[in-house]
Design a protein around this nucleic acid. Structure first.
Lengths: 255, 255
DNA sequence: CGGCTATTTGAGGTACCTCAACGCCCGTGG
DNA sequence: CCACGGGCGTTGAGGTACCTCAAATAGCCG
């Protein structure tokens, strides 16, 4: 969903605020003392602006840097032998993109930007050293990994055991919750940055069927569409359609 | 399925060998110095023999112990609102069952024994202290968590984008590989410890369709059946049917 | 042998897929 | 500013992989 009109190129100076969000999100799941927060902010990094659909990691890679998603969206995917694509994870602004490579040698999936995105590339060695010397940073990394794995399990349930309508509703609900958590000031109306084809690859459906399911979601009043845009406009309606329960997002963990 | 005739009750003394296997599996993915291996073996624990279909963890629990699967199989599952069950993970002998609770407050899925099983219950606090003081133990825990998450992503692909036949073949292949890795001396013919209903809940299918798919797998010569037993008898045939690639199991990690 | 559970088989239904055409949005270049 | 082109969304018609329901069989334990 390519370059958004309301997203003009940002001033190069504002990385600080974006990095702040990353640290804030980590802390929200696993509290970090101020000194550790500062250590994270003091990490060296390279700043990159990436176009939509830019590949960041490929299956088999052995990365030397850990990308952090400062703005925009990204997704993980895998391919089946017949060319079928399954999106196995979605990352939102402020999310780290590859803590895994701190501990595993080779990457087991592909990672791509969904929208235009800003990324900070932190040398893995630097991050590793920080994790090795500061207990609560290591813990925060682990918690992020565990929460993402929990979301993956919920997606398994979603794909394996829910019909198209609740399946789609569940995903939109999750996305709305996650964005809401990380940007509490944002609209309640979530602007969904995915094409119907991408939604299909998340849900294990075809684009055609996603289209038809979106239409009925719109008739139910759960979703609004205009042009190519999609909004999750009534989260309660969505939640009702799929019996959404946010336990698996582990928001309670910090408390 | 459960109580296997060839699995007589073991002498109570043999925990050592079983715990050894747990430590060996950890080390295989992330090398541990001997002192750390010994520290793990020296952990206090309670020994339990569990019947098939015994619940070990429930969604919402806040466990005080970390169960280690010394023998037998166990699985994680989640329920949809309409009662549909999705199995989201399978654990085999020697696997830790809940490292997650070292770092997350509440459990987000259910965990049950599949077969008769022996578990060691290690106090979380003791394990946590070990992980906090010994870097390579913390790392080994993380690697185990990451590999399980990687398997979860492959299951997403499997459920979302493969037809019943390659889907079933892929799962059987994975299971054969995993068991082979952890017990290199075992038969090449894997005795699959799952009912067709359980297979269905892993694969996002119905038991009836699993039955029919197994029949064609048998006709293909990939699988052998007798009575209620199922063997993955020709792993190469299975691998051919699904283009299996074991990269995602991260066997290369220790090397 | 009886009773339970897992497996097997059949017949009919449906949720979702495939293929294909069309139209709209939007960026591009004249 | 308009014409063009490509990508994405939309719609229809027909097909199929898998599901549902139901009943029968087979294995297993007491």
């Amino acid at each position: 969903m390519p370059p958004r009109p309301e997203m003009p190129p940002r001033p190069e100076q504002s990385h600080k605020a974006q990095l702040d969000m990353f640290v804030r999100k980590l802390t929200a799941h696993s509290p970090l003392p101020l000194s550790d927060q500062e250590a994270l902010l003091a990490l060296p990094y390279q700043y990159r602006q990436l176009a939509p659909n830019t590949t960041i990691l490929r299956e088999g890679d052995r990365p030397q840097v850990c990308p952090i998603l400062l703005s925009g969206f990204a997704y993980r995917y895998k391919l089946a032998a017949d060319g079928g694509r399954q999106i196995v994870g979605l990352r939102i602004p402020g999310d780290p993109l590859d803590f895994q490579s701190l501990y595993l040698r080779t990457v087991d999936h592909n990672l791509q930007t969904l929208t235009q995105a800003d990324v900070a590339l932190v040398p893995l060695a630097e991050l590793e050293q920080l994790a090795d010397t500061r207990r609560s940073i290591a813990r925060a990394i682990l918690v992020d990994i565990l929460v993402e794995a929990s979301i993956g399990r919920e997606w398994q349930l979603n794909i394996g055991r829910r019909h198209a309508l609740p399946r789609l509703a569940h995903f939109l609900c999750e996305l709305a919750y996650r964005v809401q958590f990380s940007e509490p000031q944002a609209d309640a109306q979530l602007d969904v940055p995915l094409t119907q084809e991408q939604l299909a690859d998340i849900l294990g459906l075809t684009p055609v069927h996603v289209n038809r399911t979106l239409k009925t979601l719109e008739q139910e009043g759960a979703v609004t569409r205009s042009g190519r845009r999609l909004w999750a406009s009534d989260i309660n309606a969505l939640a009702r359609l799929c019996d959404f329960s946010p336990l698996y997002l582990h928001r309670d963990n910090a408390a």
